[in-house]
Structures are given as C-alpha cells and as structure tokens.
Simulated scan of single mutants.
Amino acid sequence: MKVMVLLKATRETEAGKMPGEALIGAMMRYNEDLAKAGVLVAAEGLHPSARGARIRFSGEDRTVVEGPFGDPSSLVAGFWIFEVGSLQEAVDWVRRCPNPMEGEAEVELRPILGADDFGEALTAELREREERLRAGEGRPAT
C-alpha cells in the first residue's frame, strides 16, 4: 500500500525559515534509510503558502486565490510517499523520523487510494487508460 506522509506547516515554515545543516543531515540519513528499505517513493518540501495558489470550484466556475492561506496548522510543509505493507508499518517508520521542526511538529499519515478502491466505477477501459498514464504514455519527450 502507498501512504502519503504529510508534514504539517508551522509559523516558521510559513515564514520561509529553512532548517539548519544538522537537521538537513539527519533528515538525509532518515531518507536514505527509507530508500535502502525500499519504502521511499518520493519526498519533497514545499515553499510557504504565500508562494502558492488555490483554485475554488463551484459548478463550472473557477476562482483563483493566491496565498498565503491562514492557519499554518491546516497547511502542509512537505511530504513523503511510502510503499509499505500496512499503515502500522508507515507509523513505525515515521516514529523513527528525526523531529522535522525545531520544537513541535505534526505529521499526518493518509493511505493513498488504489484502483481497486474505486470498485465498479473504474471500468476495464478506464483502468487501462489509468495504467497507460502511469506508464508515462502520452508525455512529451524531454
């Protein structure tokens, strides 16, 4: 199963404060351990919400709202994607993580939906199209 591990933002991350060398080194070692174990699919930090945008949908209308986006505890500062056998395995890995912030930090774990989770709504034709997309068909050459 894939699990998205969401690092919640803080006032410091929203202010653009970057981690120091010691924390970057500790996180690099942690990410290397994840990779060696075959758990790490992706890991990225995010710029503060002031550099982002949201698009609100209402029927056919689209409204673009530029950041910042309010309460940092409701925002995401970074993420990992793990490939694990269970949610408990993902929890165990996160418990090994160095504290990603100076002081308090919160990490949320959310299983990622797979094709089977959509049931009959994901027809054989749609499943085939999804598999082609995941295989990279239709992407321009770089």
Rank of each mutant, 00 (worst) to 15 (best):
L40S: 14
V41R: 03
A42E: 14
A42T: 13
A43V: 10
A43D: 12
G45E: 07
H47S: 13
H47L: 15
H47P: 05
P48V: 05
P48Q: 04
P48K: 04
A50G: 03
A50R: 13
G52C: 07
G52Y: 02
A53E: 15
R54G: 11
I55W: 00
R56K: 10
F57D: 03
F57I: 15
S58M: 12
S58G: 12
E60V: 11
D61P: 01
D61Y: 01
T63C: 08
V65H: 04
P68N: 07
P68I: 08
G70H: 06
G70S: 02
G70C: 00
D71R: 07
P72A: 00
S73N: 07
S74F: 09
G78L: 08
F79V: 01
W80S: 07
F82I: 10
E83C: 01
E83Y: 04
G85L: 03
G85Y: 01
L87S: 11
Q88C: 11
Q88I: 01
E89G: 05
A90S: 03
A90Q: 14
A90R: 02
A90V: 04
V91Q: 07
V91K: 09
D92C: 09
D92G: 15
R95N: 09
R95H: 13
R96C: 15
R96N: 14
C97W: 00
P98V: 12
P100A: 06
M101Q: 14
M101R: 14
M101D: 08
G103C: 07
E104W: 03
V107A: 06
P111A: 06
I112F: 00
I112K: 04
L113C: 06
L113S: 14
G114R: 10
D116G: 12
F118T: 10
G119W: 01
L122A: 11
A124F: 02
E125A: 12
E125C: 12
L126Y: 06
E131P: 00
R132V: 00
L133K: 06
L133G: 13
L133Y: 11
